[in-house]
Design a protein around this nucleic acid. Sequence first.
DNA 1: CCACAGACGTAGCAAGCGCTTGGTAAATGG
DNA 2: CCATTTACCAAGCGCTTGCTACGTCTGTGG
Lengths: 222, 222
Amino acid sequence: MTTTSAKSGRSRTRTAGEGGPRRRGRGSSALASERREHLVKLAAELFAEKGFQATTVRNIADEAGILSGSLYHHFDSKESIVDEILAGFFTEIMASYQAVIAEGRNPRDTIAGLVRVAFGTLEPHRAAITVMQNDWNYLKGMDRFAYLIKSEDEVEKMWVDTLQTGQEDGLFRSDLDPKLTYRMIRDTVWVAVRWFRPGGRLDAQGLAEHYLKVMFDGINLH
Amino acid sequence: MTTTSAKSGRSRTRTAGEGGPRRRGRGSSALASERREHLVKLAAELFAEKGFQATTVRNIADEAGILSGSLYHHFDSKESIVDEILAGFFTEIMASYQAVIAEGRNPRDTIAGLVRVAFGTLEPHRAAITVMQNDWNYLKGMDRFAYLIKSEDEVEKMWVDTLQTGQEDGLFRSDLDPKLTYRMIRDTVWVAVRWFRPGGRLDAQGLAEHYLKVMFDGINLH
DNA sequence: CCACAGACGTAGCAAGCGCTTGGTAAATGG
DNA sequence: CCATTTACCAAGCGCTTGCTACGTCTGTGG
């Protein structure tokens, strides 16, 4: 079925897409960016499933029902697609984190809020998180993604500050390294994208509550 | 420096290698497998650093100071190299796990032992674990690595059984899902490979003790 | 001293990669 | 009705990929 091009020019079977009447010509720019966002989402799923490098521009184009070259009408490069995916995720989660911090509650509630926010992004941003997990090592080496490292440092500061304040207030044990503890929490949350499936036994918030119990009080019976 | 081949045949500068006298001809088969293991280790480092797919056979050969074609004297394919890496890791860790279980101690001590074993592999098998983390999604899709999934299931059973017994014995809280708890523990341990560096502030066993404290009793001050 | 086998180099193939160029059908605005 | 813009197709370029075929060098056992 991937046999290229029947003889007549305009006969490509479009394997994907909603099959509706093809929109051509100048749509409103709002609709144009809708198309763009749709392509980004398709790409994100593929990146998450097979990895960024293993996903070819032809894969993405196939999924969208167009040819690989046509992708370059919408995007500069393959990198710019994954950039859009990750940037969207980062701006949203950092805003959510800031909102929790801004509530100004005690460190325990703040940490709980951050954990709930993190688990809350698991479903809407599953693909982005997966890409971040699997291809981080590769992507961070590229200049264009230097901003990701900067954002991650800001996030780390939020968590570590909250943990430290909690220790000073006598809410958390003082024999724990805040940085190490933050990493433990962060990794445990994000890594859940590997086995978390939206329709499963537990939803994201159920996971969050389960995790909060273990994190705050441990698995021991007291 | 990668300019190919000066005019005279035998003048390749060998960029890597210990520079000792080149061993040729029939060595003992023990030494032959030594060479093989050395190549596997080089490849493992590259796979861990750049990812399996992003690492080319030419990268590996460069690191070894030979040409890419010469690699195929030692290995069938690029896949067979990563196979050797992962298989070695899995057989060792499963043996270690079995040994802990066989001690027959109480569930709390057994879990602690498993955690210590896991952290203990962080240093000697850093590359293998990194590959498993980053390229798992890609590798598990290939028939040749189906055995990895089977091994993982066996490991899961060990942990979950121990956790359940602990709950029945009144050692662990009963309001936790054993499977979910196992995954939390597993992920937190392995994911540490991303930021763990052998010469750092804390060694692997220090990490293990830090983690055991949090896992058993939580971060709350009791 | 010589046949042998292991350990490489040399050269290159077929396939696939990201991306570019130039053209074309369709919708829109004036 | 026509100029313009959008969204695509068709074709392919330059390069890299994993891998192969075959020749060459070298230490070793007989």
